[in-house]
Design a protein around this nucleic acid. Structure first.
Lengths: 111, 111
DNA sequence: CACCTATGGGTAGCATTACTACCCTTCAAA
DNA sequence: TTTGAAGGGTAGTAATGCTACCCATAGGTG
């Protein structure tokens, strides 16, 4: 999977994953991998800054938990994040429709 | 249409448009607009550098024409460009499949 | 004539964003 | 004791689309 394709879509995927319940960073990476059929195997250097961005934007809330004596940060969707996820879904559909029309549609001959 | 979504997919769209026959830059912009149902209305500052990239990569061949006394540059797919377009199409399908699985699929609950 | 608009090509610099390559800790198993 | 996985993090880089400009020609319209 060429990486650049992900640009601009990662936030939507993170929100979608967190819609399944709170997770910490490693869990998010795992959910992306399994949920995509192994197609997205993203490095931590991609996920953590992205989660921080989403938190900064108020779409996600992160809380430190210390259940096993180990510091781990758990992220969950905020109300704004859920709304954003809906927007992202319809935005994806529109984008996808346009791309498919151009990629798979019959060629429009030049004048 | 949020712009960042386009990142990493523009080259594929350009190749797809040029598969309909040679065009100059303005024609490419127009074809992207009409072919996408008005969803992609991309500025020249996006298209021209991208076409130059594709030319540099040997996927597209540009030739100056002077039919109406006006200098215009016409681009057409090379053989490598046609091959690349096929790759881009299957790559898009794979990417799209993965995104849809995550965005629309049933949430995978955290452990 | 002067001005505006569309067509047509181009570039410099900016902002965003994902990635590589690192640093750190804790814990279990070999 | 050492190795590996789990877990969190950052600095710097590369790619790339966009904004804001530059240029020219042509055809209308005030």
């Amino acid at each position: 999977m060429r990486a650049e394709r992900l640009k601009g879509h990662l936030d939507a995927l993170l929100l979608a994953v967190l819609a399944g319940g709170p997770r910490h960073g490693y869990g998010v990476i795992e959910a992306l991998r399994t949920g995509s059929g192994g197609r997205f195997d993203l490095p931590k250097g991609t996920i953590y800054p992205a989660l921080h961005r989403l938190e900064q934007a108020g779409l996600v809330r992160g809380t430190w938990s210390d259940d096993t004596g180990r510091q781990r940060r758990t992220y969950e969707l905020t109300a704004a994040g859920k709304r954003q996820l809906n927007d992202e879904r319809s935005s994806w559909r529109e984008f996808s429709t346009a791309v498919v029309a151009l990629l798979e549609g019959k060629p429009c001959p030049a004048t």
